[in-house]
């Protein structure tokens, strides 16, 4: 048995997140137990307000749960201090956001290298060029985000998520700002990267068609797993 089989890439136990209190209490997550194996490509679907984004934020250590635990590669995020979480995020998690969230005055290459730079390290150039090539960005390195199309920008965001060779990639509605065709291409890219580099990928979407390409679909309704729990 390998270490990864011993510890799933991602595991949550009784994950609960409540906002507000009293009558205004919102149960964004209400006891979620999921397990995602290393290298798995999982789509999380659900209606608006079902709690899928909250789940993703918990998985990526951006937000702390009200109760319950999140384990990434066997480590419990709740035990980490803020600074440790930050370092964990930039080394182990790659984020892809709906609105790309690139820094407008840094060029493509700088945006991709941002997490590496924040970690005070140098880029692993062979890996970097493989990623850029696979995403078709090799000629765009000096362009600024403002001069790129939405699909190109989202590919840059994917490259940024992969630059640090993280254990997991978390994508929050990566196709939400894109037309259907470009959206499919971006998902195909995510899938390709998942196969090519073996990163565990969790993608949020509200589009069932896009979710079909995943290894597994987890459906969330009202903060609970409705389907796909393992």
């Amino acid at each position: 048995m390998t270490a990864t089989e011993e510890h799933p890439a991602l595991r949550t136990g009784g994950l609960t997140k409540h906002y507000g209190s009293g009558e205004a209490l919102v149960r964004a997550l209400d006891g979620v137990d999921i397990e995602i194996a290393s290298g798995e490509f999982v789509a999380v679907v659900g209606t608006s307000g079902s709690g899928k984004s909250t789940l993703l934020h918990m998985l990526g250590g951006l937000d702390r749960p009200t109760s319950g635990q999140v384990f990434v590669a066997g480590k419990e995020l709740g035990r980490m201090k803020d600074d440790e979480l930050t370092v964990f995020r930039r080394r182990s998690v790659g984020f892809v956001f709906q609105a790309y969230n690139l820094v407008p005055n840094l060029n493509v290459m700088e945006n991709v290298l941002l997490p590496v730079g924040l970690d005070g390290r140098k880029a692993d150039e062979p890996h970097l060029y493989r990623v850029l090539e696979a995403l078709g960005l090799e000629d765009l390195g000096e362009r600024l985000p403002g001069n790129l199309s939405g699909g190109q920008q989202q590919r840059v965001a994917i490259a940024r998520a992969l630059a640090n060779q993280p254990e997991i990639v978390l994508a929050d509605e990566p196709t939400g700002n894109l037309d259907t065709k470009t959206g499919s291409e971006v998902v195909a890219m995510l899938r390709l990267m998942n196969r090519e580099f073996g990163q565990t990928t969790v993608m949020i979407t509200h589009n069932d068609d896009i979710a079909k390409g995943a290894d597994r679909v987890i459906r969330i309704e009202d903060g609970r797993i409705a389907e796909g729990q393992r």
Binding site: P104, N105, N107, E110, L113, V116, G117, G120, A123, L144
Partner: peptide, 27 residues
């Protein structure tokens, strides 16, 4: 905030905090 038109940096040097700050100064 006006968007810059041209990038001035090349190469694969990872941007440092200092580089980010200097890029932001005249944004």
């Amino acid at each position: 905030i006006a968007l810059p038109r041209r990038s001035t940096r090349r190469g694969t040097n990872a941007p440092s905090v200092g580089r980010l700050a200097s890029a932001n100064l005249f944004r």
